[in-house]
């Protein structure tokens, strides 16, 4: 594999051809928020939080879907990028009903985390306050649409890792919603194997174990690499001793 060199935030770095910008950036120990992308799932470029400035183009490019190329020069935390990230997070908080104080993920939520890290302490936009249901028909899990940010990690993991394709998205625009089967209650879904993968990868309190109470839900992502490596390389190596996946 060919080695490439490029500059990230004015530092010269080297990486491997074919790597995504995101991987390369993270290898340098630089934190970049990613709410839709998750290592092991197909990059989608939906949340726009990982946008970076690339010198050769006037467009901002998402690090998760862009391949690193020889000679690229990028900025990851310019004033403009940070401002936009903050605005995007505000938009997400305004879109649905996030009341952290009573949420199962309070304290461990990726959305909340990113907002805290960037210092987002208020929302300047109208809360859209949509009326959305909570579906608790499944034996083990619940889906609370009020907390969903439409990252579609659940759709992706259920399709590409579990292979069930129980989830998909219905409608479009701000009226989109994740659905199981024919927009039926999750509990009656015949395709769901109750594997729980979707719950584990969900960045927010939208998907949770049934019965979790406020701030109780813990999620792990490490199974993803475990399964994918097992599938591709026939190697099963548990990282971080198999404890909590994130961080």
């Amino acid at each position: 594999m060919a080695v490439i060199t490029m500059t990230i935030n004015d530092e010269l770095v080297s990486g491997v051809e074919g790597q995504s910008l995101l991987t390369l950036i993270r290898e340098q120990g630089i934190e970049l928020p990613t709410l839709c992308h998750l290592e092991g799932l197909e990059a989608r470029g939906g949340c726009r939080l990982c946008l970076v400035e690339v010198q050769s183009t006037h467009r901002l490019l998402p690090a998760c879907t862009t391949t690193a190329q020889e000679g690229m020069a990028i900025q990851t935390h310019s004033e403009r990028l940070v401002r936009y990230r903050r605005m995007i997070l505000e938009l997400l908080f305004a879109e649905r009903n996030h009341v952290c104080a009573v949420c199962v993920m309070n304290g461990r939520c990726e959305l909340q985390d990113e907002a805290a890290k960037i210092g987002m302490d208020h929302v300047r936009y109208d809360y859209l306050v949509p009326e959305l249901p909570l579906d608790a028909s499944h034996d083990k899990f619940i889906i609370d649409h009020n907390r969903c940010i439409l990252c579609t990690r659940c759709v992706s993991v259920c399709d590409s890792v579990e292979g069930a394709h129980t989830w998909d998205v219905m409608g479009r625009g701000v009226n989109s919603r994740v659905i199981t089967d024919l927009n039926q209650p999750w509990g009656v879904s015949r395709s769901c194997t109750s594997c729980g993968k979707c719950v584990q990868v969900c960045p927010t309190g939208a998907l949770a174990n049934k019965g979790s109470t406020v701030a109780e839900m813990v999620k792990r992502h490490d199974f993803l690499q475990w399964i994918l490596d097992g599938r591709e390389k026939k190697q099963w190596v548990m990282q971080n001793g198999g404890s909590e996946g994130r961080r």
């Binding site: 470029g45 938009l91 997400l92 879109e95 936009y125 940010i149 479009r172 625009g173 701000v174 009226n175």
Partner: peptide, 21 residues
């Protein structure tokens, strides 16, 4: 635009609604 936004990315999905408001 709010009607026709596909909903994939946040700035367009929510941003257009806020601008419309």
């Amino acid at each position: 635009c709010t009607d026709e936004s596909c909903g994939k990315c946040v700035p367009c999905r929510v941003g257009t609604v806020q601008m419309h408001r």
